[in-house]
Design a protein around this nucleic acid. Structure first.
Length: 421
RNA sequence: GGAGGGUUCGCAUAGAGGUCUAGUGCGCACGCUUGGAAAGCGUGUAUGGAGAAAUCCAUCAGGAGUCCGAAUCUCCUACCCUCCGCCA
């Protein structure tokens, strides 16, 4: 959510930002509606003031006849208020719906473009593996090494179902433990959050009202979150934080649930796109400063790059174009890992910042040095997601004999083994 | 699942239909006092909105209602506490 004052004062910028994100919204129309809202609000407030004043008179006045007369008068005013309030309520509801749809303004450095195909590569790292044999895809490799069981996975869960088994499980735990150690050393506090969450958390983070179809909903009207970002941001909902505890850096670990409603027919096989997976997520709440947000965006992205580098997998980093940004995102980097068999890069991580878009919806504030209330800024980034990362690990480090080499940094978490056979 | 008690300004509390325009204590800020400090005394100290300002409006968990008037009465929802039941 943007500040209506900001929208009013910068309507051209906001409108241009929406266009860059390919979001269809008419800011002029919103402002006209806001004019009407303010006009009606003023009228209602004036009448309420009158009732308040006269009600006090009624309480003080001793003259019974006058009392009765005033009460009669106020009855009439009250009816007038009721009519006006109903009108105002309709306007406010429409206004709120519109406000929730106004996208945050993308940064000037965000490239134009409609979809992820127009994302801009800003960095490449590492050598792509060269094989002197025909490389296999992760499905074949993992099946053969009994790391996964897709057939029974679909039997039990349905489409996109999987069992991880044996070294598939051990490798997952190794990744999780290594990730914990790696990010803890960078000052992140580990958190296991509730992932079955109430609706407000999703509205606050911007996953709702749009995107309902991609969420699993329970019979209690709660939702399963697709990322720990949702509960970690909700954690401080409605709070006034002490300035000196900022920045808050959290490393959330959680299962993630996604209906993948919009991606039928995409990645229908294997572990790339599944309904249920695990993710370690970096989340930062910091002071309300653009420079600080930008600094942490670079830091978060660099953390994950370093992590991938330590595994030794070739990657590139892209800036997402306007059309590939979420409603609240100002700027986003994706890190994509090399998948040999597919001969292309696939997304493993996503880093973005929001200014106060989320914290305004969630009511996460602090008092600055001048005693002024500020909405904190928020950022989040993937640390690592399993089982997706296993795809890159087994495909990049596969050997001619069908075995898979384990990156050095993971070996101690695999009982010292250097390969999976 | 059942019964009862709660949710008020950063914290703790008062408040039971009309001087509640939410009091008090703690904390915090400023001032007086002092060689300096503490104590003491005084003043101030919730959030959001409208307005150039004076000021006005809203908010006592959230929502709906009764009333000229609601923190206070009624109903619904959420959460917390105690007890009973069930349970890894």
């Amino acid at each position: 959510m943007l500040d209506i004052k900001f929208i009013r004062e910068n309507k051209d910028i906001v409108q241009a930002g929406a266009k860059k994100k390919h979001v269809d919204i008419n800011i002029e129309q919103l402002i006209a509606l806001d004019d009407e809202r303010l006009k009606q609000l003023k009228e209602v407030e004036e009448l309420r003031g009158e009732v308040n004043r006269v009600s006090n008179d009624i309480a003080r006045d001793q003259d019974e006849t006058l009392k009765i007369q005033l009460i009669e008068e106020m009855r009439a005013v009250k009816n007038e208020i009721k009519t006006k309030e109903e009108k105002l309520k309709i306007i406010i509801e429409e206004w709120q719906q519109l406000m929730l749809r106004v996208p945050n303004v993308p940064d000037i450095s965000v490239p134009d473009g409609k979809s992820d195909e127009e994302n801009l590569e800003v960095k490449g790292w590492g050598d792509k593996p060269v094989f002197d044999f025909e490389p296999k895809d992760h499905i074949e490799i993992m099946n053969k090494l009994k790391m996964v069981d897709f057939e029974r996975g679909t039997k039990v869960h349905g489409f996109r179902g999987y069992f991880l088994t044996n070294d598939g499980v051990r490798l997952s735990f190794a990744v999780w433990n290594y990730t914990m150690d790696f990010f803890s050393s960078k000052g992140f506090s580990p958190i296991i959050p509730p992932i079955l969450d109430r609706k407000e958390n999703f509205l606050g983070t911007g996953f709702l009202p749009q995107g309902e179809e991609d969420l699993y909903k329970t019979q209690d009207n709660d939702y399963l979150a697709g990322t720990a970002e949702v509960p970690l941001m909700g954690m401080h909902m409605g709070e006034i934080l002490e300035k000196n505890i900022l920045p808050l850096k959290y490393l959330g670990f959680s299962p993630c649930y996604r209906r993948e409603a919009g991606s039928h027919g995409k990645d229908v096989k294997g572990l790339i796109r599944v309904h249920e997976f695990y993710k370690l997520e970096q989340v930062i709440l910091c002071e309300a400063s653009h420079e600080t947000s930008v600094k942490f965006l670079e830091e978060l992205n660099r953390n994950t790059e370093e992590f991938i580098e330590s595994l030794g997998i070739s990657y590139h980093t892209v800036i997402n174009c306007g059309g590939d940004l979420g409603l609240g995102q100002v700027k986003k980097y994706d890190i994509e890992l090399w998948i040999p068999k597919e001969n292309k890069y696939r997304e493993i991580s996503s880093t973005s910042y929001y200014h106060d878009f989320q914290t305004r919806r969630l009511g996460i504030r602090y008092k600055d040095e001048n005693g002024k209330m500020q909405y904190a800024h928020s950022l989040n980034a993937t640390a690592i997601a399993t089982p997706r990362i296993l795809v890159s690990l087994v495909e990049n480090f596969q050997q001619a004999d069908g075995s898979v080499l384990i990156p050095e940094v993971l070996q101690k978490y695999m009982g010292g083994k250097n390969s999976i056979k």
